[in-house]
Design a protein around this nucleic acid. Structure first.
Lengths: 212, 212
DNA sequence: CACTCATCTAGACATCGTCAAGATTGGAAG
DNA sequence: CTTCCAATCTTGACGATGTCTAGATGAGTG
């Protein structure tokens, strides 16, 4: 709907190729997966020649890295939307973040795999690492709010952060590969699952007050 | 040490090419990673022409699948070794399995990524799915021993299995990508980490009686 | 001993990422 | 407005990769 049709462009110069390549790359990723992703395919989707992307991304990996940074920000936005819709207490906020984490993995499995399981990303890239640091900062803040202290101040705090992240990330990763013996397709499933998992990570009793 | 040197073979027929390709594939995976893995590279390591593997594996993905099945079995063996060395009570057995899980990820990160995060495996392959089912069966049995009942009989049981698997798997996955803010290089680290994570997944107090 | 056929080689093809050279044109400089 | 530079894009090429085909080899069977 927003993609430039394959019909030949009017202008020799595209005018907005960098953004068009990012959009094309998203579609390519969604359709072909991380392993089937092709730079030439992205160029074709954007309606330009196979060598055009080189003027905007040094590498195929650079395009993937830019896509991952953009995806990471949408990942954060998904979590934030869940937090905005949740009760403002620290506990429900952390659970909402976990729910957004799982939501994003379910709705964007290939992007999730690109971000967390691809060996092709340039992790020294400023854009990508900034998004990653943002996400980690959010996690630490959310866990710290529940604990009542800065998690980085103690071994227990770091363990709580690690446990919370690990259990939600592990569930998301195993769920998108169909390995867990539980349902998660319905919106309420993700909510209850996040509640249960985060609760366990923090040694607390789940609230089970999940809504849509 | 066990690889056939690149010096030309005596015989036109290799005699043991299938196994040699599996060994070569392991080395290729370890050296180049999942993304850098190449069928021609495996053939070269085994000292045969680039088209020779086709007679033993229909695909490059088929070789990767066979490698994953083999790796899965070694993964299970690593866990079993830890369990054999642990106290025979259900709790310590489950923790030992978690420790083996993390050990394997640390010592074989690319194989771990191939098994759990590659889109190139043929999951309908009998060998691979048998190994995967074995691993899952072990997990269910270990968790069931701790709970005192068959996890598949109740929603809580399935949640306990999912939580235990998720937290250990998530930790392993995040650790090999250097994302968790905790140390895990020393053998004792993995032991204590597994104890802490499994305990949280099961709402129990860690024993912290970890030895090497 | 002869022969069969699984095994392996050599060559070719399409596709991929990347590089080099040239065409186009937007936009700054005069 | 005109000139011209430099960014943008195209075309063509190269090496590498997975896979296919045809043919060479030889181990093991009858």
């Amino acid at each position: 709907m927003s993609e430039r049709p394959p019909s030949p462009r009017r202008n020799y110069h595209h005018g907005d190729l960098r953004d068009a390549l990012l959009r094309a790359g998203e579609a390519e990723l969604r359709d072909k997966g991380v392993e089937g992703f092709t730079l030439r395919g992205c160029a074709a989707r954007a309606g330009v020649s196979h060598a055009a992307p080189a003027h905007h991304f040094v590498d195929a990996n650079a395009l993937l890295t830019a896509l991952a940074a953009q995806g990471y920000r949408r990942f954060l936005a998904t979590q934030q939307r869940r937090k905005d819709a949740a009760a403002p207490n620290p506990r429900d906020q952390l659970i909402a973040a976990g729910r957004g984490y799982i939501d994003f993995a379910r709705d964007n499995p290939e992007m999730f795999r690109l971000i967390f399981a691809s060996g092709r990303l340039d992790h020294s890239n400023a854009d990508l690492s900034a998004a990653a640091n943002d996400a980690y900062g959010q996690l630490v803040a959310d866990v710290g709010a529940v604990l009542g202290y800065d998690p980085h101040q103690s071994e227990d705090g770091l363990l709580a952060v690690s446990a919370a992240w690990s259990i939600v990330h592990g569930a998301a990763d195993l769920l998108i590969s169909g390995r867990l013996p539980i349902s998660w397709g319905e919106p309420a499933d993700a909510a209850r699952l996040a509640d249960e998992l985060v609760s366990r990570a923090l040694y607390q009793i789940p609230t089970h007050a999940a809504g849509s």
